[in-house]
Design a protein around this nucleic acid. Structure first.
Lengths: 208, 208
DNA sequence: ATTAGTTTGTGAACTAATTCACAAGCGCCA
DNA sequence: TGGCGCTTGTGAATTAGTTCACAAACTAAT
């Protein structure tokens, strides 16, 4: 399959969330034009995005809302259940472990790790914090799909090395560092400082 | 000034964080090549990014670490102090209000708003939760630069309308909806579901 | 059955972003 | 001072992403 741009995947996510809203409103079909309006893009963009995966619409009519939802869910790999471990039992880790939206979408947090002796063994939601040194061994049994890395910047490179050695192929990284991983490991970064600096830049450079 | 791409601004943030690390190690200069290696990009990209704002390097030598840090800070509008209000006194809002990194970088949270009667008046860190209906009035005195929107999806459009009416020109949006704002308002979205779906997509479509 | 009115799917055209590649500048050393 | 080794800054070339524009397909109405 042709390489799909990250921007395309983000838009597919967005379309799916719109479709879920539209579906709740009880509407049965939607046009690329309407979807574009909701997503702040163009109808051609919407059609091009979808056409990368097949042709799901009916000319003159638009797209069936439930059908397109289903297709997008399939394309995005939802429907499957994913096993997620959280690395770093700090504030962000805690917030994430409590986040209901995870499980709703098929992302099941099945373990929490930390390197801090003081935290190991503590109960956490319905999980017990385990030592990061056990990750590689555990992974052979639990077969994690995704690691959420929420560790202090300085520990992160070492932690990520262990995640990679454990054979995990997808990382959601909250640490404010750039991860260096083999090319078969996918990383998404969530970096608050960067977002704020983006706003700061915009505010500082308006109308020049 | 020429329009600067968001991807460029993100990289500038990244370079700055590397420079801060390099500076702590006590190194005085750095080449575009080294910066590129850290950021997972190419040296040409680094130089092109910087050249949009001036020429900060010395041929044969590279860039002075403190000088380039300073320039980047200036470009990104750090150094200034920004007034930030948080809208939505829920879990995300709470985590953000407690986040130390905000103030360190000049982002000062000076108010928290919510529409829930039960929350209004409660103390929160060193702030008191105020009714969102007062935002517009408060803004004339406090002059907020940035609004952090962390409200439930269904309330968000109404909330954002009030933020815009209050004259705030930058929004960091945590709600999983697409905001519709005038073109002079800058929005950055942080959307966990979207990031997870990106990983799910990558896992589902490996090596095709 | 024909026509009018929509809306898709997709090459082609365009625009934006990245990478190449090299002249020019700088420090160091003899 | 001249030559060598490095590294920048930047047009030109390339690659990636978006938008245009239109034939084809579908519905509904007459």
């Amino acid at each position: 399959m042709k390489r799909i741009a990250e921007s395309t995947v983000r838009r597919l996510s967005l379309y799916l969330s719109f479709l879920e809203g539209i579906d709740r409103q009880g509407l049965k079909t939607i046009s690329s034009d309407e979807l574009a309006r909701l997503g702040g893009t163009t109808s051609a963009q919407v059609r091009k995005d979808l056409s990368l995966f097949g042709s799901f619409g009916k000319r003159g009519l638009g797209y069936s809302v439930p059908e397109l939802s289903g297709k997008l869910r399939e394309i995005l790999g939802l429907g499957k259940q994913w096993r997620v471990c959280i690395i770093g039992a700090g504030k962000i880790g805690a917030a994430l472990a409590r986040y209901r939206g995870f499980a709703e979408r098929g992302f099941n947090v099945t373990a929490v790790y930390d390197s801090d002796e003081a935290k190991i063994g503590k109960r956490w939601e319905n999980l017990t914090v385990r030592p990061i040194s056990e990750l590689e061994k555990d992974a052979t049994k639990q077969d994690f799909d995704i690691a959420v890395v929420a560790t202090p910047a300085e520990n992160t490179p070492a932690v990520v090395k262990q995640v990679v050695r454990a054979g995990i192929k997808a990382i959601l990284n909250f640490a404010p560092v750039q991860l260096s991983v083999p090319s078969d490991v996918t990383v998404r970064n969530v970096n608050m400082a960067m977002e704020l600096e983006g706003l700061s830049f915009a505010l500082s450079n308006r109308s020049e």
